[in-house]
Amino acid sequence: MNNSLQEYLIEKGLFITAISSILVIILIIIFIFLEGLPAMESYGFLNFIFGSLWAPTQGEFGVLTMIVGSLGITLLSLVMAIPLSLFCAIFMAEIAPSNMRKILKPVIETLAGIPSVVYGFFGLITLVPFMREQFGGTGFSMLTASIILTVMILPTIISVSEDAIRSIPSEYKEASLALGATQWQTIQNVIFPAALPGIITAIILGMGRAIGETLAVIMVAGNVTQYPTSLVDPVRALTANIAIEMGYATGLHYNALFGTAIVLFFMIVFLLIIANYLQYKKKVVIGGGYL
């Protein structure tokens, strides 16, 4: 009797803790939609998403330039970060001697621990002048922001994909090597494909961090609400728009910022669906089991 009561309480306790994070997310979503939908309705749903003019003081709330900005910064940083981090992860998991790994691992973890404001300030003081001298213009640009973001998401992608590569059973590697494959052939044809779902997870996490990063992007992206015509044009990200204007926004402007959050929310959901689909498609079935 006493035991079963204890079991019951623990079971319900665990259930409550598990459900609480879901509850929090649901509450946040409800709040964002309640605050954001009025602006979308009164400005027109399509006008809001496909409008190119953002001028809150004149009552113009079009966020398409910022959608382009967010996507541009995120994709550009992924293009730079994925090759860098994957090769680094392969090196650390398969090739590096354990001494070297002992140095590399903590260094990369330190990179992840640096606060984003430090990255942003570093970018503003060193990278922005450098970009201005190299490419002209103001130095605040999509490229500057994505370089900073690349450094910020490297540790996430490296450590998660390194774990994925390390979790491949050593039998696979041994079998491949025993068949006469070289180490690179083994990595390329056996280990990498088998670790691909884990690597995609790593990239999703990196992408999530890139698209959600706010402070560092505000400091170096220039925050101009125009379509970029080149990589060195300044852009504004959706997250930056919310953070920059929240302090001074009242009335419809305030709601429009939550509208921006709704757009961001759907963008992330959309990207997550694509990424999960890719992950599902690339799942390797070997010997009757998933990896």
């Binding site: 002048p129 103001t138 220039g222 101009v224 920059i244």
Partner: peptide
Amino acid sequence: SIRSDSIVQSSTEMVKQAVIQDPNA
């Protein structure tokens, strides 16, 4: 209205920092 391609910074201190590092700002 202020030219729409001007760089936006979110605090006075950040505007100052941007001016300090750019001779043409």
